[in-house]
Amino acid sequence: MKIIVVGCGRMGSGLARALDRTNHDVAVIDRDESAFESLGSNFRGLTIKGIGFDRNALIKAGIERSDGLAACTSSDDANTVTARIAREMFRVPTVVARLYDPDKADVYRRLGIQTIGSISWAVKRALEIFSYSKLDVVESLGSGGGVEILHVAATAALVGHKLSELNIPGEIKVVALERSGKTAIGAEELTIESGDQLYVAAHASSVGQLRALMGIERVR
């Protein structure tokens, strides 16, 4: 694919290098030539000095034949304008803009601009690590207070116990176990090993209890 990256800061240069390493045809635009140093000496893509909505810079970067464009300068406004130009004026099929302000993302999405908010992503991820790191909801069955299908990574508290020990009739039931790339159903006599991934059906009101069994929530 031919991809244009606008803005050669941490995100832009990281993305450009990753695309180059995986043999994509990359062109990077930045207003400051010294920013291209971060691409390293092995970078095979094109570097163009200019601002992201400079017609000449975009055409030099090959926007008329590009498959995608990522706008990742430090300015939300510049990124949005660049993304819109790419989409509406040059008909680039896939366009993404980096946005620092998460409040704007919804509206911009309605304008046809896909956004990546590094900050909102980081906040979400940190929240996940605090609350769900070893336990993700795969699917919620029924509406409101139904049953959750949970993906559970084996914790130290679970290793050495039999799968059946997790079962609580009417509340928690192990559905499947994934080990070394294979998934088995109903192998309840197996002993949990480190690295195992469990799929567990739990009543919504019993998820706290499951966390306690996993040792990721203190029993109050």
């Binding site: 909505f53 300015s75 406004d77 510049a78 949005t80 304008v81 819109r84 509206v107 309605r110 304008l111």
Partner: peptide, 16 residues
């Protein structure tokens, strides 16, 4: 005095 700001606001006002 910023063209990108003028464009963004125009875009939002018109489209949204």
């Amino acid at each position: 005095g910023s063209d990108e700001t003028n464009l963004i606001v125009a875009m939002l006002a018109k489209m949204e």
